[in-house]
């Protein structure tokens, strides 16, 4: 029914895809590099009164390690300016106060959906100094194209 070469092709090509899967699985489960999947629940209408979002901002939690508690709302990020020294690892804790937003930092792997009712977490190490553009990559309304801020790495 099948030509030999067709079997070989299906075997090799699917093997290649399985190879991609294995790399993904290894990185996710052995190296803890999985995609942002945190899922603690929060009342989306009471974000301002719920810890830690009642006090958004940046906090040093270790040597070269920072924690940023951030809320997203139309059409801004709070806190809006973030500065960290080069070589620091930053843990972002995010939630939305209204509609679905996206949290993306250009030229890094920071990219996460921020959905009302859920807390999202994502981490990035900033090695190179510069100004990084933070933007919302999920359409959120008339001012969506203005929703941005920067992270300065010194």
């Amino acid at each position: 029914m099948m030509h030999r070469s067709e079997k070989v092709w299906l075997f090799l090509s699917f093997g290649m895809i399985i190879g991609f899967m294995l790399i993904t699985g290894y990185q996710t489960f052995a190296l803890e590099m999985g995609p942002p999947s945190y899922g603690e629940r929060i009342d989306p209408q009471k974000v301002d009164e719920t810890a830690p979002f009642d006090n958004p901002g940046i906090k040093q939690i270790g040597e070269d390690e920072y924690e940023v508690v951030m809320t997203l709302q139309v059409f801004s990020f709070t806190p809006s300016k973030i500065e960290v020294p080069a070589g620091s690892t930053v843990h972002f804790i995010l939630t939305s106060k209204d509609v679905v937003h996206g949290f993306q930092v250009a030229e890094t792997n920071l990219n996460a959906m921020v959905v009302p009712g859920y807390v999202q977490k994502i981490t990035q190490k900033f090695d190179n100094p510069g100004e990084y553009l933070v933007l919302c990559n999920e359409y959120c309304g008339a001012g969506h194209q203005m929703m941005s801020t920067t992270i300065t790495v010194k």
Binding site: E6, W9, L10, S13, F14, I17, F20, M21, T24, G25, T28, F29, G34, P35, P36, S37, Y38, G39, N111, A112, M113, V114, V115, Y118, V119, Q120
Partner: peptide, 29 residues
């Protein structure tokens, strides 16, 4: 990259998504 779906579940879904590639690879040949 949505919140609230655990990593093993997401991993299982990668497999389910990529499985659709199989009939497409058959089609290519």
């Amino acid at each position: 990259i949505d919140p609230g779906i655990s990593e093993p579940v997401k991993y299982m879904h990668v497999f389910m998504s990529l499985a659709i590639g199989f009939p497409s690879l058959m089609t290519a040949y």
